[in-house]
Design a protein around this nucleic acid. Structure first.
Lengths: 243, 243
DNA sequence: ACAAAAGTGTTGATCGTACACCCATGT
DNA sequence: ACATGGGTGTACGATCAACACTTTTGT
């Protein structure tokens, strides 16, 4: 079965996803280490089937890598400079992995040509509840793991720039939305929301004013208190209001 | 010379441009009428050369159609539903224009196949000083003209939606920027700026507060007065501050 | 009783809007 | 002088940040 060709996929067009998660007061990004010599790290990506919409393709790629559906997803930028190609990178990799490609991975020369062409990439970012995700390798991946955004490995091609740009775009979007709650579990305390904002913006906010601002958005409903065993007043739990 | 093929252009990928201009207190969009039977109207568009960046391609397309360079240009959305294709439209057109295609336009069957494939379109909008533009037809156009945004003809495919979305995106961008001054000539009065804003947002603003708001942005410099011959105080001219 | 952290209230500054007034221009 | 429209200043109200205070929890 030939996987990479223009009958199956739209040629020269890729989707690269910056998948944001959050725990331990750190913003995380899902990154794969390719199943190749040379420590190649990449954002989760894929191609668009000929009979598939671009947003659907992004959702499918995310589903394949995280196991969850209906993910919050946002296109933020296209990456399409003329020089943007895997060719040099992949030619080096192929040199070092010749037996691997023709053996286990089993790529034909046609497929290699297809893959090393110039590509234009549609940049999406996604926000997920990290606890619901099961990071899932493709057969080209050696690993698929969360990395703190401040401790990312060296990413291939322009993927580091993609993470940067996606974060900027996320911050802009947050000014008027509360999409960021997609990063939290079903229920959460106000302090958790605040920690999340402070992590994303790398800033500190006044506790009382922050609470007021968020509650004034009228999107949260207050549930029972959460008794943590700590010797202080028990915080309320909140969740997204449905309708 | 075969024009439309995958050696020259990136296949299945197009750029559609919403080119905004402004005069007579109306927002205008540049639209072409295709040189075909059936009154087909289209946004200016084009394809991306294999050795050309996407933003450069958009600039080139704009230059070809307007005669000016260094245009303010903004990508605002991709259009990539699975069903997005010229096929049905073009097959009808070809039926009605068979002799035209094989004659004057001289498209080969390969080119027709290439053009009727499913396409993903990168949506850009541009802001131009309408006085500097020389609308320029390609050989596929019968005309290339400005239409008031409220009096657009029926546009082909999803081009009407593109105009709508581009306008929304323009409004959002204006909240924090003054890019809209790209629509005005070199020098202008405060009233002209206000008229422009009111046209774009379809709203009215208080004269004095509007002036204060714009001047507080610290991007304009005041020039001499403009004596119009009207029996009232002469307004100042302004222009973008350089540095 | 006390420490720690959550919840609420109050004040002061800042910003946008509404109103009022003055100024220049040509008939 | 006067009508017309441009420019500027002031006052009010809403919004946001800083400070203070009260409440709850477990030791």
């Amino acid at each position: 079965m030939s996987r990479f060709n223009s009958q199956t996929y739209i040629p020269q067009l890729a989707i690269d996803c910056v998948i944001f998660g959050y725990n331990d007061k750190a913003l995380k990004v899902l990154v794969s280490k390719l199943n190749l010599k040379g420590d190649i790290y990449s954002l989760p990506n894929g191609f668009i089937f000929q009979d598939e919409g671009i947003d659907e393709a992004a959702q499918r790629i995310l589903r394949e890598r995280t196991g969850i559906s209906n993910i919050f997803l946002q296109h933020y930028k296209n990456f399409g400079q003329a020089e943007r190609s895997n060719r040099v990178l992949l030619e080096n990799i192929i040199e070092q992995n010749r037996e691997h490609f023709t053996g286990e991975v089993n790529l034909t020369q046609e497929e290699i040509d297809w893959l090393t062409n110039r590509f234009i990439s549609l940049g999406y970012y996604a926000l997920v509840d990290i606890n619901k995700v099961t990071p899932t390798k493709s057969d080209l991946d050696e690993s698929m793991e969360w990395y703190s955004i401040n401790e990312l490995p060296n990413l291939m091609m322009d993927h580091a720039e993609m993470v940067k740009t996606a974060l900027k775009s996320l911050r802009l979007n947050l000014d008027n939305n509360i999409i960021v709650l997609n990063l939290l579990p079903e229920t959460f305390t106000m302090k958790e929301v605040q920690d999340l904002y402070e992590t994303i913006f790398e800033d500190k906010y006044a506790r009382n004013n922050f609470q007021k601002k968020i509650l004034d958005l009228n999107v949260l409903e207050r549930l029972e208190k959460k008794f943590t065993g700590a010797q202080n007043k028990a915080p309320y739990l909140y969740r997204f209001r449905k309708g």
